[in-house]
Simulated scan of single mutants.
Amino acid sequence: MSDLGHLRKSYERDTLEETQASSEPLRQFELWMKEALASGVVPEPNAMTVATVSPEGRPSTRVVLIKAFDARGIVWYTNYHSRKGRELAGNPFAALQFHWVEMERVVRIEGRVEKVSDAESDAYYASRPLDSRLGAWASPQSEVISSRAVLVANAAKAAAQHGLNPERPPHWGGFRLVPDRWEFWQGRKSRLHDRLSYRLVDGQWLRERLAP
């Protein structure tokens, strides 16, 4: 077995004090996202891990891309028949995590998940490159397939059937997580990290510091 216990890193890039942080988690997220986008060192600042739970209570995670965020919540798009889609249909709660390694930052978000409107899904689908739109038709996401040739054949079939202006598949669209918990983590020296938590209590955000 490989021994990785010797790996160490000292986190010393930044701090997260209450005097620095916004009283509103969405505003704090917007600030950190802008900094991640502008940094030039984070390869995919829009990549986030989504965690869902099966009916048997078994958790699973996968990486998706955030496509929008506002006061209503955090939005991403996927196949509703995928494993995460099925799990969210049975248990409409999830957790998200952004890990901006190069900035020594983590953002965690928890809340209820709902589908976005058909109009929102249609608009985003129409904005995608043609290959991606056809791919939504071609991939039976999370299902077992015999080989990559199945995807290639499905894509060719979708192109022949739908042409240059395919409509959005009815099984494909957006999810929105409506947050009721946020956490902002900033790595600090000696493992004395900064952790600021926001909980929704009676319609107001309560900010608290957590021990690392």
Rank of each mutant, 00 (worst) to 15 (best):
G163S: 08
L134S: 00
Y124G: 00
D180L: 08
L96C: 07
V150G: 00
R133F: 06
P45V: 00
V201E: 14
G174C: 05
P166N: 11
E104W: 05
S142K: 00
A21D: 06
E102G: 04
P43G: 04
R112V: 03
D194S: 13
G40I: 04
K9F: 11
G111C: 03
R188S: 12
G135S: 11
Q97M: 15
A95T: 04
E104T: 06
R209L: 10
S39R: 10
E12R: 15
A95K: 03
S190A: 15
S39Y: 09
D131F: 09
V201G: 01
R86K: 14
R8L: 12
G57Y: 08
F98T: 02
V178M: 14
V106S: 13
S132H: 13
S82G: 07
S82W: 01
R199P: 01
A123C: 02
V63P: 06
L151K: 00
N154S: 09
Q28A: 13
Y80F: 15
A47K: 02
L4V: 06
A89Q: 14
L177Q: 02
S54P: 05
G111K: 00
R191Q: 13
A126S: 11
A149F: 09
A68G: 14
A149P: 02
P140S: 07
I109K: 00
R13H: 14
E114M: 06
A158Y: 03
L200N: 04
S197T: 08
D131P: 03
F98H: 04
N79K: 10
H193Y: 11
A136E: 02
R83A: 11
D118S: 12
V144Q: 04
D194W: 03
A21S: 13
G173Q: 02
V107G: 03
